[in-house]
Simulated assay, not measured.
Amino acid sequence: MAPIMPPTRLEAMSTTVTPAERLLDLVIALTHTEHRMTKADVRRHVNGYSHAGNDDAFERMFERDKVTLRELGIPLVTLTDDAHGDDIGYRIDLDGYDLPHVDLTPAEIGVLSVAAQVWDGEHLDLPARRALTKLRAVSPAASGELSGHVLRIPPPSATFDPLLSAIADRAVVTFTYRAATSRAASQRRVEPWRLVVRDGAWYVLGHDLVRDAERLFRLTRITGAVRVGAAGSAVHPRSAATDEGAASVDGASGTTSTARVAVRPERAAQVRLRATSVTTGDGRWAGWDLLALPVGDVEDLAGLLAGHTDAVVVLDPPHLRDAVVSRLRAAAALAGPEAPRG
């Protein structure tokens, strides 16, 4: 039998191998083998299969992976040895691969890998992982610059899909929305343009027909179902000069602006991640770092800053500082007087 893959990373067995990792390693092995791999070769050389407790467990694992490969459109070829007809082997026929030529750079593959995390645990999780497996088999490895990078955003909520469909169909949507400050709920009619991530949360950007203005609505504040109107019912075009940073967050106190905060050195890493600029403080704030932050949703940002207590001081704007102080006072009231010791 022709030699198979050299014992590279596929033989570096990890303590825990996910099904997606095992499937990717199987694709790489079957793609690079010069002739074929038998089941014994797969079990011995492909990362993940050695963890099968017995022959039956390995057979079930391998059969599931073969079915998955064929569902992905990957041409898995079965070969038999001329001298030993019962000695069955496998390989992937790249000439029969149904993908067109894929010309992706390592950085682009890395970005796709990170973007697929949006669907982690959601209904598109499996298709996203399978698509990445297929792309990685015929593309260069992901850029090391993005290795281990994790998206700091929540998965899409139940309102995501109907809003996405409405955007594609240019349809008006109707939903009940709870304001951030008053908590009052009201019905809104919106022509949605885009779904965006801002300050670690999902928003829908569109034209609010109730207020006749461009607005951002946070998806977690939409209560109940999103009702989608007829296709083509949305008529307001999005201005080319406007981006999501210029829209007001509906129901939030204040609009998008820039906050200035003083942060103690090497503290408040989550706050630093949102900074658009960092300078060295002087005078009263000598020894501190001065950060500029996009305000966006005041209530959300105030909650983040208050969580860092004495490590962060809000300098501007006043309404953000008041919101943070209010939270700190409420936390102090909940703590109550210190219990006597001894």
Rank of each mutant, 00 (worst) to 15 (best):
2 A>G: 11
3 P>Y: 11
3 P>N: 10
14 S>G: 14
20 A>Q: 07
27 V>K: 02
27 V>A: 06
32 H>K: 09
32 H>F: 14
38 T>N: 04
39 K>E: 12
40 A>R: 11
43 R>G: 09
48 G>F: 02
50 S>Y: 07
57 A>K: 12
58 F>H: 13
62 F>D: 06
67 V>E: 14
80 T>W: 03
86 D>V: 08
86 D>Q: 13
90 Y>A: 02
94 L>W: 13
101 H>I: 06
104 L>F: 14
106 P>E: 02
120 D>I: 00
124 L>P: 00
127 P>A: 10
131 A>K: 01
132 L>N: 01
134 K>F: 00
145 E>G: 10
151 L>Q: 11
154 P>F: 01
163 L>N: 00
164 L>M: 08
171 A>L: 10
174 T>K: 08
189 R>D: 02
190 V>E: 01
191 E>T: 09
193 W>T: 07
196 V>Q: 01
202 W>N: 00
206 G>K: 03
207 H>G: 12
213 A>C: 09
214 E>A: 05
225 A>Q: 01
229 G>V: 05
253 S>Q: 12
255 T>F: 08
255 T>Q: 11
258 T>F: 03
260 R>Y: 03
262 A>N: 00
266 E>M: 04
266 E>I: 03
270 Q>F: 11
273 L>D: 09
275 A>G: 05
279 T>P: 00
288 W>Q: 03
290 L>G: 03
291 L>Y: 01
307 G>Q: 14
310 D>M: 12
314 V>R: 03
321 R>Y: 03
328 L>M: 11
330 A>F: 07
336 G>Q: 12
